[in-house]
Amino acid sequence: MKWTEKYLKRMREKAHEEAEASEIAISVNDLYKSFKLPTERAWGLKQAIFNRLKGIKGFRKQEVLRGLSFDVKRGEFLGIVGRNGSGKSTLLKVLSEIYVPDKGSVKINGTLVPFIELGVGFNPELTGRENVYLNGALLGFSNKEMDEMFEDIVKFAELEDFMDQKLKNYSSGMQVRLAFSIAIRARGDILILDEVLAVGDAAFQEKCNEYFKSLHGNQTVILVTHDMGNVERFCDRAILIEEGKIKCQGKPSKVTKEYLKLWD
């Protein structure tokens, strides 16, 4: 083979690899995370000095994630299920770069918009409009980007007449509607949602369901939930986590069955 052909072949291979890599939105490789939990009730300077003098560690190690590996494809709707304390939320926080992993790596292609909780930073003394912009800034959007999204958010939340009211004058239903609308209207490549589907009245929920169905194939979503109905309705694939490891993954119907077996 001539060197030019070799060179061309190598270029083709490289291009192929790159195309494959761009198909992956999130790549998680052998992730470990543990926490130091203080064993004393009072945790302060005095206790720290005491422990140092007595040679006590003063905390115990809690292993939460123990070697997780998985990929999320671009445009995929991935469900993550598992019982309380299995490590789902910790995983989302590592993906969102809130926690640093002890070991392993997370590779993210594109911008990631995390909603670990709805309405983070919402302040009752600010107006609805001010809260939307503050929330947007926290999520990493510029004022210009928020200007473009604003009308869409307000319309989806059905709060056109209330945006210049202070948030403390909103009903709790109105507050979650606003927060939820920001969450699903925020334009990022990857959306992370932690157990936030059940908000608003029946009509609003119906609207949200419609919206989630319309996302199919266009938006990468990672959804953590305990509602197996939602997993089967929206997700292309699901992962069951147990004690910080993947117990099973694949078709939503298969994973939800495994999930329900946990209590047998």
């Binding site: 302040n123 600010l126 503050l134 800034a137 926290l138 959007f141 004022n143």
Partner: peptide, 14 residues
Amino acid sequence: RVLLAELIKTDFKL
């Protein structure tokens, strides 16, 4: 910078 400006505005307003 956007986040900083937004937080300063909020703090001062509140």
